[in-house]
Deep mutational scan, measured.
Amino acid sequence: TGYYDVLGVKPDASDNELKKAYRKMALKFHPDKNPDGAEQFKQISQAYEVLSDEKKRQIYDQ
């Protein structure tokens, strides 16, 4: 599964769309709200870390 799929956004998503999707998913799977969501929360955080950084995103998109 790709990072875009993890966040539920298209590859041409804007920074604002990425942030909005990340916040929505992070709230849904945060371990405090969803004890079984810890692994998914890590994936969401990693996806956002890469896609929100312009240089990392360019490398990922290659």
Rank of each mutant, 00 (worst) to 15 (best):
N16D: 15
P11C: 14
R57P: 03
Q46N: 11
L18I: 15
A38D: 08
V50N: 05
E49F: 10
K42S: 10
Y48Q: 03
E49W: 12
A38H: 10
F41N: 02
Y3F: 09
D36A: 11
A38S: 08
H30C: 13
H30W: 07
R57Q: 04
S14G: 07
Q40R: 13
Q40P: 02
G2E: 09
Y22I: 03
E54H: 15
S14E: 04
E49A: 12
L18H: 02
D36F: 10
Y4N: 01
A13G: 03
E39N: 07
E39H: 06
I59T: 11
V50T: 11
I44C: 04
D36S: 08
Q58G: 07
D36P: 01
S45C: 14
Y60M: 04
S45E: 14
R23G: 11
I44A: 05
T1N: 11
V6F: 04
K33P: 02
R57N: 02
I59W: 11
M25D: 08
G37P: 01
E39P: 05
V50P: 01
L18S: 00
D5Q: 11
Y48E: 02
Y3S: 01
K20L: 11
V9K: 01
K20D: 15
Q62C: 12
P11R: 11
G8V: 02
A21L: 04
V9C: 09
A38F: 10
S52A: 11
G37T: 12
S14A: 06
P11H: 10
K10V: 04
N16R: 14
Y4Q: 01
P35N: 04
Q46M: 13
Q46H: 12
D53H: 06
H30V: 02
Y60E: 03
S52I: 13
S14L: 03
L7Y: 00
L18T: 01
Q43P: 03
S45G: 06
Y3N: 05
K33M: 12
L7H: 01
K42C: 11
G37Y: 15
N34Q: 08
K10E: 08
A21C: 07
K19S: 09
N16G: 12
G2V: 06
L27I: 14
A21D: 01
K56Y: 05
G8F: 04
D61M: 06
K19L: 14
K28A: 13
Q46R: 11
A26Q: 10
Q40H: 12
K33A: 10
D36M: 09
G8K: 05
R57V: 03
K33I: 14
V50S: 03
K33C: 14
Q58P: 08
F29E: 05
K10Q: 08
Y22L: 06
K24T: 07
Y60W: 04
S52E: 03
P11Y: 08
F41R: 03
A13N: 02
M25L: 15
S52M: 14
V9R: 00
S14P: 03
Q58N: 09
I44V: 08
S45R: 14
D36G: 10
Q43W: 11
K28V: 10
H30P: 02
S52F: 05
S52H: 06
K19H: 09
V6H: 03
R23A: 14
K56F: 08
F41I: 04
R57F: 04
Y48T: 02
N16E: 15
D32Q: 08
D53V: 07
L7W: 00
